[in-house]
Deep mutational scan, measured.
Amino acid sequence: LTVQLGNLEWHFDNPEQALKMAEELAKRYQLKVEIDNGTLKFK
């Protein structure tokens, strides 16, 4: 699973870790998370 923020990307083997990080980033920057083809992206 990949977490993508702008041109930064983090790759996780563990989806739970990816979701946890995505939630933290979304909270911190007040963004919405969307999943696009196995990639978590922020809007």
Rank of each mutant, 00 (worst) to 15 (best):
L19V: 08
E24N: 12
K41E: 02
E23G: 08
K32V: 15
L40I: 15
V3Q: 02
D36S: 13
Q17S: 10
L40G: 00
N14I: 09
H11V: 07
Y29S: 01
L40D: 00
G6D: 04
K41C: 11
D36N: 11
L31T: 02
W10R: 03
Y29H: 04
T39F: 13
A26I: 05
D13Y: 06
G38P: 01
E23I: 13
Q17D: 15
L5W: 15
Y29R: 02
R28Q: 06
L40T: 00
N14W: 06
E24Q: 14
E16F: 13
L1M: 13
L5I: 08
E16I: 13
K27F: 10
V33G: 02
N7L: 12
D36Q: 11
H11N: 05
A18P: 02
T39A: 05
I35F: 14
L8S: 08
M21R: 04
D36T: 11
A22R: 02
V3H: 02
V3P: 02
K43E: 05
N7S: 12
T39V: 15
P15E: 08
D13E: 12
M21T: 04
Q17R: 10
R28E: 05
G38V: 04
I35P: 03
L31E: 00
G6L: 06
N7E: 09
E16R: 12
N14K: 09
N14S: 11
V33M: 10
E34Y: 15
K20Y: 07
E24C: 15
E9C: 15
A22S: 04
Q30M: 11
K41M: 07
F42K: 01
Y29P: 00
W10T: 01
R28K: 13
D13T: 13
H11L: 05
M21K: 07
A18E: 00
V33I: 15
F42H: 01
L8P: 00
E34I: 15
H11C: 10
W10Q: 02
L19E: 04
A18V: 05
F42D: 00
G6E: 04
K20I: 09
N37Y: 04
L25D: 00
T39S: 05
D36P: 01
W10P: 00
F42S: 01
Q4A: 07
N14V: 08
T39G: 03
A22Y: 04
E34S: 09
G6K: 04
K43A: 10
H11S: 06
T39P: 01
K32E: 10
T2P: 03
Y29D: 00
L8N: 09
E34F: 15
G6T: 03
H11D: 03
N14T: 12
